[in-house]
């Protein structure tokens, strides 16, 4: 995997959102939505970011596209740090990086027909010569499994799954390299969700797309990803290839997350690690390891020292987790403190 070309490289990315308040509406604090994360996305792969609400996965996607201006860090796309680009230079890069949202309806103009929606994207990026645009639109419609006869309909005439296909077609219209899918299939009914997932995979094969797939659904993630990042409270807690993450996970949070998902396998033996309490506020994240307030393995060091992402014996190359105790937990030396 490591000899593959790196398409997107995120370095020490921070995204803090100011909170206004106090006597004169000054910035009194920050929501540390994403706090110093780094990862690489290889060309042609699907890298998923998973985590619960508030972990910063969507914020990361938006920051990579500069939909919000990141507070600090580097985002290198194809070797260029796009955070240093001015607006005009950035626009050139936008063609290569597209996003699909959870609710496609919120991001398309309801008064436009599908033809207008798809042509508009091409116009803005000037990606396709004018006289070819019409054919391209029809082609796109068929690529995403919509009939070319539906080309002059408005978004509201389509079902949720079809609208998501329009969203995908629009992203594809400028021939991007990277697609960020932010909970792109989460709002769809299960039978439709499978259709869209298959479509995304087919498109990836056909157009050699790279996906940054943001989702809370670990079933979907297991099916679609090559590698997976687990985030908790603005930090990466574990990053691994799919197989390692599901079968050889090291971080207690990853373990808890996976064990919390209800399984359809009636025979499966369950050792559920029930986490107590809620995720702390990202305004005042816990010192040390951010997971320590809910972690059954937490000790003093967890409360004071921030764990580094690291690889250790028995972990595959490229598999890293951020836990002080992962060796001891794995060997069974370190048992969870029972205080239920």
């Amino acid at each position: 995997m490591n000899n593959q070309k790196v398409l997107l490289k995120v370095d020490d990315l921070k995204q803090y959102f100011p909170i206004k308040g106090g006597f004169f509406g000054r910035t009194v604090n920050h929501v540390k939505a994403v706090d110093d994360i780094s990862f690489e996305v290889y060309e042609g792969e699907t890298l998923s970011i998973v985590g619960e609400s508030g972990c910063g996965k969507s914020t990361t996607g938006r920051a990579v596209l500069r939909l919000d201006e990141p507070t600090d860090g580097k985002v290198e796309f194809d070797g260029t740090n796009i955070l240093e680009l001015n607006k005009k230079e950035m626009n050139k890069f936008r063609k290569d990086m597209q996003i699909i949202f959870q609710d496609p309806y919120a991001s398309i103009n309801p008064r436009h027909t599908v033809r207008q929606i798809l042509t508009e994207a091409m116009e803005i990026q000037n990606a396709v010569p004018k006289h070819e645009r019409n054919d391209r639109v029809k082609e796109l419609m068929e690529t995403v499994g919509l009939g070319a006869h539906q080309i002059d309909r408005h978004p509201h005439e389509f079902s949720g799954g079809q609208r998501q296909r329009i969203g995908i077609a629009r992203a594809l219209s400028v021939d991007p390299k990277l697609i960020i899918a932010d909970e792109a299939v989460s709002a769809l009914d299960v039978s439709i969700q499978a259709q869209v997932i298959n479509l995304l995979k087919k498109l990836q094969r056909e157009f050699k797309l790279t996906y940054l797939f943001i989702s809370h659904d670990l079933g979907v993630v297991r099916h679609i990803s090559d590698r997976i990042i687990v985030m908790y409270l603005g930090k990466v807690v574990e990053i691994a290839d799919k197989k390692s993450l599901f079968t050889n996970n090291m971080h207690p949070y990853t373990k808890a997350l996976l064990s919390a998902i209800p399984s359809t396998d009636l025979e499966a033996k369950k050792e559920r690690i029930t986490l107590k309490g809620d995720v702390p506020s990202p305004i005042d994240p816990p010192e040390g390891c951010r997971f320590h307030t809910r972690c059954p393995f937490a000790t003093d060091i967890c409360r004071t020292k921030v764990p580094e992402l690291r690889n250790t014996e028995g972990m595959k190359d490229g598999h890293r987790a951020a836990c002080h105790h992962m060796e001891a937990i794995r060997s069974g030396e370190h048992q969870p403190t029972v205080n239920a």
Partner: peptide
């Protein structure tokens, strides 16, 4: 059956494409 096969599970691998229920409601 279609519902069960079309939902990817976190504890099972699916080879190739997911089974789908064609069309929509």
């Amino acid at each position: 059956v279609g519902l069960m096969q079309s939902v990817p599970q976190h504890d099972q691998d699916v080879d190739g494409d997911l089974a789908v229920i064609r069309g929509s409601v």
